[in-house]
Design a protein around this nucleic acid. Structure first.
Lengths: 249, 249
DNA sequence: CGGGGTCTTGAAGAGACTCAAAGAAAGTGG
DNA sequence: CCACTTTCTTTGAGTCTCTTCAAGACCCCG
């Protein structure tokens, strides 16, 4: 299965147009000439088996990653032992950037599928920051977006949170899988619970309600949306079809 | 009262050392020569009376602000009519930066005290992004910090959330008010509720419990911390005295 | 065929919410 | 300076969402 990924081993970095989920990539809007410079700074790409840690919480490694292919989950283990899933990285996403670059990692990164990542040394990252302002600007916009998104399920109940959760994946993946009858999400109900701060039991009950209401079904890692406008309504988002949300400067 | 602020009218922009709450400022780590360039790009500073809107949700103005003096609250009105307070800007903070610079403002900004802000046009902001990479890098780190902070009260109960809420102010203000018997916070219990997603009634009950436990008292906009280590414990943070959390690149 | 991970369902309990009302503090105008 | 209004705080009683604990069903994989 990894052969598929190894075939891409020597390909260039994903550019704005190559990268499937490009709305979330700091490479968005960076001119090709500068992307080529970015490419020269990268280390040897890494292939990851599913359920493999790219790095662990508390570790110090000073690497910076761009996800080329696959799904990678970023999560944090709380002092109570509970797991908080921060976000799911898809191709084009940036991984391991945190507010204190010199501190130990505040979270861990684990692959959900076979994955391919490019790493950069800290020195390379500094050089990128200095010499590719478009990249840095997009990174700031990207984290502003993560911040805004994190506040979106404020004061929502379980149904609304779960609706919002699935809708995000729908919007990130719909451009890719064209006749999107069903979407593949390599996650479990427990993952959903740990992302939204609910219990697996309550996620399960809520999913059953959503299915009975004819809004969506999520079984065997397949998401099937049966009533998109009801889903938008529940998530409290305008059902507009504009594709991008991060601005190009 | 505004005379005090008008006296500062023609002073230079706050630099890293001048600015009281410098950990949160994107000016942190920016060389003086570049700060001077920043200063030449700013528009005429604005003074704000308390409870005045700097901008409103849905407005389009294309300005970018640095807070020079005072308290400014950033909040968002949800479709249910409820208010969600995103954060409290203190001197040095950046205001109005959002993930889509061309879209209408996703939130509003309102002063809590008399305030002084410097504004920049969008064109100036673009020039800053291009020419002062240290500023852009700090901005990215800053929003990474906001993002991390937003996830900090994940799966916490009201006591823990409120403990964390006050602790943040304590850490931001302690360097300023030296013999910090009490800290001045120009907010109400309802503001706390709208920040944490609780009801004012429940915030009140929780504050009473915290007071009875001898941890803290918050009355007449005065915060008095009676047991700091218990507060750290409750908030789930290590009680280390290291002063800064944003790294200098 | 057996076992671990995942999903499903029930019953009881805790934390936070709603509604309601009164008391305290702060601001306003005569 | 006092009466009045407004805002903020406090307290009680009942309700609801979500959690906890527990047990069984399903399903994939070795």
């Amino acid at each position: 299965m990894l052969a598929h990924f190894k075939a891409r081993y020597f390909r260039p970095l994903p550019t704005c147009t190559q990268c499937v989920i490009r709305d979330y990539s700091p490479c968005r809007g960076v001119p090709t000439a500068l992307l080529n410079r970015l490419q020269r700074l990268r280390n040897k790409p890494l292939t990851l088996q599913p359920k493999t840690h790219l790095y662990r919480q508390g570790g110090t490694h000073g690497q910076f990653y761009l996800l080329y292919d696959g799904w990678i989950m970023l999560y944090k283990t709380l002092r109570t032992g509970k797991r908080h899933i921060l976000r799911y990285a898809l191709p084009g996403d940036v991984i391991s950037f945190q507010s204190d670059l010199h501190a130990p990692m505040t979270h861990a990164a684990q692959s959900l599928t076979p994955s391919l990542v490019c790493s950069f040394s800290r020195r390379s990252l500094m050089e990128i920051f200095e010499s590719i302002p478009q990249f840095t600007t997009q990174l700031a916009l990207l984290f502003a977006h993560y911040y805004e998104e994190q506040t979106a399920t404020f004061h929502c109940n379980a149904q609304q949170s779960i609706a919002f959760f699935f809708l995000k994946f729908y919007e990130r993946l719909k451009s890719q899988e064209h006749q999107a009858e069903t979407l593949f999400l390599p996650i479990t109900q427990e993952d959903i619970a740990d992302t939204l701060g609910l219990t697996p039991v309550h996620v399960n009950r809520t999913l059953r309600i959503l299915a009975k209401q004819g809004i969506l079904e999520f079984q065997h890692q397949q998401l099937k949306i049966n009533n998109l406008s009801a889903l938008y309504e529940l998530a409290g988002r305008p059902n507009k079809t504009s594709s991008s949300f991060l601005c190009t400067v």
